[in-house]
Design a protein around this nucleic acid. Sequence first.
DNA 1: GGTTAGCACTCGGTAGAATCGAGTGCTAGC
DNA 2: GCTAGCACTCGATTCTACCGAGTGCTAACC
Lengths: 349, 349
Amino acid sequence: MARRPVTTSQNTKDLDARKATILEAVVAEHIDTAQPVGSSSVAHSADLDVSPATVRSEMVALEHEGYLAQPHTSAGRVPTDKGYRYFVDHLKSGVMSSAQQHQVQDFFANVRGEVEDVLQQTSSLLSRLTNYTSVVVRASHGHASILSVQLVSLDARHQVLVVVFSDGAVIKHSIMSTYDASFEDVTEASRQLNALLLTTTLESRVQVPSRSDNVATLVREAVSVLHAEQPTLDGEQVFIGGSSRVAEVFDGVETVRTVLSILEQELLVVTLIQDILGRGLSVAIGSEHGYEALSSCAVIVAPVTIDGEPAGAVGLLGPTRMKYPEALAAAAMVSQQLTRHLDGEDGLG
Amino acid sequence: MARRPVTTSQNTKDLDARKATILEAVVAEHIDTAQPVGSSSVAHSADLDVSPATVRSEMVALEHEGYLAQPHTSAGRVPTDKGYRYFVDHLKSGVMSSAQQHQVQDFFANVRGEVEDVLQQTSSLLSRLTNYTSVVVRASHGHASILSVQLVSLDARHQVLVVVFSDGAVIKHSIMSTYDASFEDVTEASRQLNALLLTTTLESRVQVPSRSDNVATLVREAVSVLHAEQPTLDGEQVFIGGSSRVAEVFDGVETVRTVLSILEQELLVVTLIQDILGRGLSVAIGSEHGYEALSSCAVIVAPVTIDGEPAGAVGLLGPTRMKYPEALAAAAMVSQQLTRHLDGEDGLG
DNA sequence: GGTTAGCACTCGGTAGAATCGAGTGCTAGC
DNA sequence: GCTAGCACTCGATTCTACCGAGTGCTAACC
């Protein structure tokens, strides 16, 4: 997956009022119709009392400044990524239909079950609301403290390590011992692990016993397996909803393929979302997120917190000509309601 | 999702040798080219020494008997589901390239990690091998015996119930108590739960204490939450690999959409696979599996066992004109190797 | 100077006609 | 029973003409 350098500054200085109106009209209409937009329809729709000819001359200016592009001579104008960016940056906060608002409220009033299930369903909800593919990311439990460690024997050579975190997450790891571990060994190792790890986090490193008896070996093995957890995927979980939307929202089999195959790579998705979030954006349009393969996509993200701490994010993936007002509003409302829901449950469903 | 009655008997009585050869030639060529197949190419390719005209008259017969169809007059023939069925039923066992065989062996020689990860990667492997979308289903732990039950307190009102099964699976459930549970209450409840549930299975029902003290309430809550596990999804896990293949393998956005949206519904996928498996088939073609929406798909399944007991299945989803010999061989080899891998690990990775 | 009406020009999209050709079904003869 | 021959069908391709939405430019207008 080719990664291009990221443009940090948006370089969207304000346009004069009329250019802005025209740009916004073009973007809005193109989002609506998926067609290049001509000067006359802009002249009529936007309530500036000027002739198409005037609009045209403004359009060439906007084209020179990089906000618009022309698929070919004698076609209308189409927004560039920069054009969309301006549009998004100058959006007055959108609204959701009250029917949709109710839908969200009802959802959160009625969900129950494990956090994982709630997050998966939230992802589906967001996708249904917007008709785009939705992504919900749950932050890693890297800095949640450990509440319980338990080693359970499957048989003499196989043990399962189960760790419960303060955020309610549970992880398991399988351990294969190199010698036959007695029931007592395992129980004792389990006891020592608790003593060792309780209240620490996955990020902290602990002193392991250096003895070479069976129990110490088990303990060392368990601790090392836990610490090995980090490098791969940081323990984030990804929940994708409405992946079938990809097929209806993008045109061109090739694009659909590419986007789907990116969605298959959870690590990539997590990185992407965190990247955007880290840059303090709520939308990344086209080339902005730096993934060549997603150059025809826009990504909307909204953070989710628990007790004020970052706990994940919700995201939406659509074409650059996505319905920003609605999508932004939906993402905002869902992330906010999800945050409240998780807070209300003390960090766990 | 409309469900049609399932055809149980295949009704594929043998055809005479020449018809069979012709039918097989048509199917093979159509799988290869995706085009309707004409009489002359069959006459040349298959080594029957007859003229196209003869082939033609056989073809009308095959059409009457329902093995072939004509998209329109003056086009070649295309196999029907029944035609594919005959082809599959009379397939001499296919072969995999030795390169692919090595790929599979290398994979299983080198995978490590949790079963879940292994299964997910196996799914990706199978998809890469075949260029179709792959599904790996892990059977529910409904009749694995319980090795350990633990109740962990998040805070006074929230507990996490963690259960470890003999097959190495770990499940968790969140519990909200209606009163403040002390640390001692939780420890005691945990102890009692162990006494109650150890060596039982999720399917068995146990006698819960009828007292109304705090501990008993916790215990009842925990047990009921466990038993409630069953009805929804039976605890099966689904791992889908290469969903992006859908976009390149089916034509028509609508089909892609439908197939993707079915893959989103895990319950449906599990049912489908188990259904096919239950009918003792290894392939379900077009209308055979009874899902209207998948009428242009073929599904290949192969069971996976642990110690001879059913433990899940691997599956492939492709168009009815999929490359059956290769796909069947790949599914067979992967399921067999996976079975061996899981057996070798004593039922757990 | 900014705005506008007028106009010639561009060029993608569509509709229709002509044609091609792969493939069929039928029939008569071997 | 097989096959050569033949008329016929019908989707796909190509070509042409043409329409019209939209542009850029210029000259006049306020």
